[in-house]
Amino acid sequence: MEIKKILPPILVLIIFLAIWSLGAKIYDMAFLLPGPLTVAEAFIKDFQLVIGGLWITFQEALYGYLLAITIGMTFAAIMSQSRILERSFYPYAILLQTLPAVAVAPLIVLWFGFDMQSVVIISLIISLFPIINNTLLGLKSTSITLVELFQMHNQSRFVNFFKLRLPAAIPNVIAGLRISAGLSVIGAIVGEFIIGSGSEGGGLGVMIIYAQADLETPLVIALILTATALGFAFFSIVSVLGHYLLHNWHESEIA
């Protein structure tokens, strides 16, 4: 059973690596398109460096993500409590999504300086909207019958929120958290690109810029893959959490 589950994606990976190797061999310009083995070598050679960068990017993305979760869920909870609040604030939440975060990043750096703080804020801005949007959708989708049932036996908004609306919204909250997991890492990399040259010993994004300038393409690819793995790890942790919270009752997780 387990093997049957893991086998198909592994097969795809092997095929992908084979095509990549072949392509690199035919193209035969290692400094532009290194094969997977060359990338692996670069990764091992600069392992210490890559892990150092990963650690920094991890922290930036994690703080950005946690802030986005806290702010996003609080904001959604407040909007869910009143039509007027929702109508007043939701349009601006949408602007957060349409805002070209990459273009705003330089401004953030001007305001908050060439350091980690700015990167965290950029990561926060990029990962915030899906959390607000999905949480709000979940909090507003409570079955009317259940709302009436609660209304008959307890009038407290607090009870209604924590015993009914919030648990009912968890599938949506998890959906939002999953989208934002990858976005928080993307945000951290974007932030690092902007502060790039101005910082010492930065994270993966900073290293990508330096490695690119040195035409160290294998290292660039190794760094990209490391950043991808980081986003994937965030995603997986949220998925495990989602499974833990939903496996007893929600269609999406019932085996």
């Binding site: 019958t145 259940l146 036996h153 015993k163 009752w249």
Partner: peptide
């Protein structure tokens, strides 16, 4: 004191049987 039985049973899907029976008492 009144209670209402809804057409679709109106149970909380994330609570097991025991906790569903407890629900209204909890609210009260």
């Amino acid at each position: 004191k009144g209670a209402f039985v809804f057409q679709d049973a109106a149970l909380l899907p994330w609570r097991n049987v025991q906790n569903n029976v407890e629900l209204l008492m909890e609210l009260e």
